[in-house]
């Protein structure tokens, strides 16, 4: 099911209720059901996978144990042969042969589990891909529907508040005007700021007796003259 193609058909037909045109409520339920099924399948596959993986680990552990057992018994056979205990050696060899049969069975089982694991992993990846695809397509339908409805909500809102969506050119004019106002205000504020700051500074300097060099020098002179007189 190519949802985008259906969306295009619905738009061509000038459909108002896009979402419904694309998939009716029953169709949407089927679609959502498919997603649910895919998720359920994935969950089951994961469960199966963990079980098979556990069995595979058990088999490989058993193989290790059997292998060690075989090696141990083989050394016993060597010991028995060294001591010329032919009959005993043969008896142990019988046991080794049983262990080997057991081991080859486990190896066979492990191989079969491993191939089962690979198969399940493949199935899971396929289900994941399918699920992602269903969800992506459902997103397309829902987004199309949502944007339509949101636009209707916005348009209704402008209708009820007695304001209208301005035309693009009107908006641009308004924005340019407001930005100009904003810039002008900023400029004016900056100018004012400079002036007041400047005034404050010179006032402060005057108060501190800083800046007016001539009067400063005169003050020093006056002070020294006054000192000489005493």
């Amino acid at each position: 099911m190519n949802i985008l193609k259906k969306i295009m058909t619905a738009i061509r037909g000038g459909s108002r209720e896009l979402g419904e045109a694309i998939i009716d409520s029953q169709g949407a339920r089927i679609f959502e059901q498919e997603i649910e099924d895919a998720k359920e399948g994935l969950k089951n596959a994961k469960h199966d996978l963990t079980q098979v993986m556990a069995k595979e680990m058990q088999a490989s552990r058993k193989i290790d144990i059997l292998q060690k057992d075989i090696e141990k018994n083989e050394s016993f056979i060597n010991d028995a042969l060294e001591k010329n205990e032919e009959a005993l050696a043969l008896e142990i060899a019988g046991k080794v042969s049983e262990l080997e049969a057991d081991k080859s069975m486990q190896v066979e089982a492990q191989r079969s589990y491993a191939s089962h694991i690979a198969k399940l992993k493949g199935l899971m990846e396929k289900a994941e891909r399918q699920l992602k695809d269903y969800e992506r397509q459902l997103t397309m339908v829902k987004t199309t529907e949502n944007v339509r409805k949101a636009t209707a909500t916005i348009t209704d809102n402008f209708g009820t508040t007695n304001s209208t969506l301005l035309s693009a050119k009107e908006s641009l004019e308004r924005i340019k005007q407001k930005q100009q106002d904003f810039d002008d205000r900023n400029l004016a504020a900056e100018k004012l700021d400079n002036e007041t700051n400047g005034k404050n500074l010179s006032d402060k300097m005057k108060d501190a007796g800083i800046g007016d060099k001539e009067s400063g020098a005169q003050a020093v002179l006056a002070r020294l003259k006054a000192k000489q007189k005493t």
Binding site: E135, T139, K142, T143, N146, V147, A150, I154, L165, S167, A168, K169, S171, R174, I175, K178, Q179, F182
Partner: peptide, 22 residues
């Protein structure tokens, strides 16, 4: 000074829309 941005949400997306012209 600008255009209103309309924000709406779906299951996996946030859509931010500015209406330009009709």
């Amino acid at each position: 000074e600008c255009f209103p941005v309309f924000l709406t949400k779906t299951n996996n997306q946030i859509l931010c829309i500015v209406y330009l012209w009709s």
